[in-house]
Design a protein around this nucleic acid. Structure first.
Lengths: 126, 126
DNA sequence: CTGTATCCGCCGCGATACTG
DNA sequence: CAGTATCGCGGCGGATACAG
């Protein structure tokens, strides 16, 4: 089955790998999904912080910065005191929500199959 | 938009996160995709090694072991000399190919949008 | 409220060399 | 050909304290 099945070659900087790299950091996909599914694509720092159990301020900020750098979200500072900042999905960000949501839904759909076999999925090997 | 949009809570061990964790290791998704798209769901070690530019024997073996542990693939040792081993997708593995392929295709489809904005996607912040 | 700066442990992953 | 054993680095990511 090597033939027409577009070779793809897995070049280091090919699009698919660039996409996969977005899942490399722990929180990116969750921030994205939360921002979209729970806050309509726009939310403030504190809100996100509370929507993501377990994340630290540091990681949230860092993750948001990376996402901004790649063009998934836009940061807006509201001149005020105390300061208020909100983040919103860019067009690209909205589009990237699609695959993330697919993954999310796929996970829910196959939840049982997953624990049937992958009880030790995240288990340390010892 | 908080309402019906299934809360999900992002529990540490919820299905979606379990799925995402499969993308946590660098090569898993690529091995899976290659195994499926280029070798019809079954291939031997050496073949995979050559199909994945940049991977090392160590990481390939390690990745395959993890995938086996989670139930994505099956390992078969053919009694012979020199030894021959092949790996094939399990039913769950086949199903997991779906989302991986979606990601893959999404990447290709949005390739241009990605380099337009994400030229510095993997860039170090300095 | 939002964001930064440090310190630091853990582990992913690459390079290399060796066994059957 | 398939697999394991080491060594070592880079960096993710958690905890904590501080600043605007």
């Amino acid at each position: 089955m090597h033939p027409g099945t577009d070779e793809a070659e897995w070049r280091e900087d090919c699009a698919p790998r660039r996409v996969l790299s977005l899942f490399a950091t722990k929180w990116t996909s969750m921030v994205l999904h939360t921002l979209h599914a729970r806050h309509g694509g726009q939310a403030r720092t504190g809100v996100l912080l509370r929507s993501l159990p377990g994340i630290s301020k540091k990681m949230l900020t860092q993750t948001l910065r990376e996402m901004e750098e790649v063009g998934l979200i836009e940061r807006r500072v509201l001149a005020a005191m105390p300061p208020a900042v909100d983040y919103r999905l860019t067009p690209l960000g909205c589009r990237f929500v699609e695959p993330v949501t697919m993954l999310y839904d796929w996970g829910r759909a196959n939840a049982d199959a997953l624990d049937a076999l992958g009880s030790r999925a995240g288990a340390r090997r010892e």
